[in-house]
């Protein structure tokens, strides 16, 4: 279980995360929706401890990280048990896509790394472009590679920031199927997305964020019957755009 309680984060005087509490269970998909600038990416970085929250606590499978006054000096972040795929991907530009996926696996042995990488390349249909550098492939292909790098780590919790935004429909479908498969393997997934259809079908929990707060939370039914006016407005905008 990945639990966040009363997380706050400010940049200077600007409060980016305002008293956020949430719970991600293993083997479930949670979708996080909300307008740009609502704090979704910051929340993902805070949950993965890439950014230390100002206050609150995060618990992961029995370990608790406390922030603010109760913070212990040394925090050993839970990577890659919790891993993130960022919206901007951040593939290492000096390596081919295959090397990007393989590098974090090398400590598990070259044989294991090769087998895992080849399986993923096969599953995600990357054979034609796996040996190219990130700047030699399309954004969609880069997104696939960034996801493959995260999948290869076999994390317990996977935090994904708008990973399907640049993909065509075939890739989106392949990725979403893969996410369902990972969920079925017991991985907890938090997905920032605007694909309402996927959220409705596959998510067991939906969070709506606005201005640094989780404004509404519930099952996928809140996507069709939002309770707050702000979420109603947002859903109608997303539905109109899609």
């Amino acid at each position: 279980m990945l639990q966040a309680e009363n997380i706050t984060k400010s940049y200077g005087k600007h409060l980016v995360l305002d008293d956020i509490s949430l719970e991600l269970a293993p083997g479930t998909i949670t979708t996080l929706i909300g307008p740009s600038g609502s704090g979704k990416s910051t929340l993902l970085r805070a949950l993965s401890l890439l950014e230390t929250p100002d206050s609150g606590s995060i618990s992961l499978n029995g370990r608790t990280y406390e922030f603010g006054q109760g913070q212990k000096n040394e925090i050993k972040p839970p990577w890659p048990e919790v891993t993130v795929v960022f919206q901007q991907l951040f593939l290492w530009p000096h390596m081919t896509l295959r090397q990007n996926i393989a590098l974090p696996l090398k400590k598990c042995g070259i044989g294991h790394a090769l087998k895992t990488v080849n399986t993923l390349i096969e599953q995600l249909d990357m054979k034609d472009f796996a040996d190219r550098h990130p700047n030699e492939v399309s954004i969609g292909q880069r997104q696939i590679a960034a996801l493959a790098r995260a999948f290869a780590l076999q994390p317990k919790f996977l935090l994904l920031d708008e990973i399907t935004s640049a993909l065509d429909i075939e890739y989106v479908t392949a990725i979403l199927k893969k996410l369902n498969a990972l969920r079925d393997q017991g991985i907890g997934i938090l997905l920032v997305t605007h694909i309402i259809g996927f959220a409705r079908r596959s998510a067991s929990q939906v969070l709506f964020m606005d201005k640094g707060k989780i404004v509404e939370t519930g099952g996928p039914e809140i996507l069709t019957e939002p309770k707050t006016q702000r979420m109603k407005e947002f859903i109608s905008l997303v539905s109109y755009a899609h």
Binding site: T83, F86, Q88, F90, W92, R149
Partner: peptide, 30 residues
């Protein structure tokens, strides 16, 4: 140096030494 490449290394479980050796140093040298 784009800190995001270091983030990607960190969440992939690379140690600080591995991050310097495999990510930072090659990019900086290039």
């Amino acid at each position: 140096f784009p800190q995001q490449y270091v983030w990607a290394a960190q969440v992939s479980g690379l140690t600080e030494k591995e991050t310097v050796l495999h990510v930072k140093l090659p990019i900086v040298l290039r």
